[in-house]
């Protein structure tokens, strides 16, 4: 992986981390803090039940793009740490 795409990937990680922190946190969740229900399930719970696995899927998809480094000395290749 080139340095550029590596650094871009890293920035994407940080972006998603921040988005996750915002979207699964106060005050963003206040948006769904309503008495309505969908299929009998409160909106807030439904949001968590969908948003949470969604973030896990994002991590999963991202982790697929990581190229493992098998260099045990782990020099050079881990400059992104």
């Amino acid at each position: 992986m080139s340095e550029k795409s590596k650094s871009q990937q890293r920035q994407m990680w940080i972006l998603f981390f921040i988005l996750g922190v915002i979207m699964l946190n106060f005050p963003f969740i206040q948006i769904f803090n309503r008495p309505e229900t969908i299929f009998g399930i409160p909106v807030f719970i439904l949001y968590i039940l969908c948003g949470w696995p969604f973030s896990i899927v994002v991590i999963y998809l991202f982790s697929r793009t990581i190229i493992e480094d098998n260099n045990k000395q782990s020099t050079g290749d881990n400059n992104d740490l």
Binding site: R10, W13, I14, F16, F17, G20, V21, L24, F44, I45, I48, W52, S55, I56, I59, S63, I66, N78, D80, L81
Partner: peptide, 24 residues
Amino acid sequence: GLDFLTIYLGPTLISFTWWFLLRK
């Protein structure tokens, strides 16, 4: 109420950083 969820949402969020942070 629902705040028990935070105990598990936190780890989910921090795991975004693991490839850099934890691996280091």
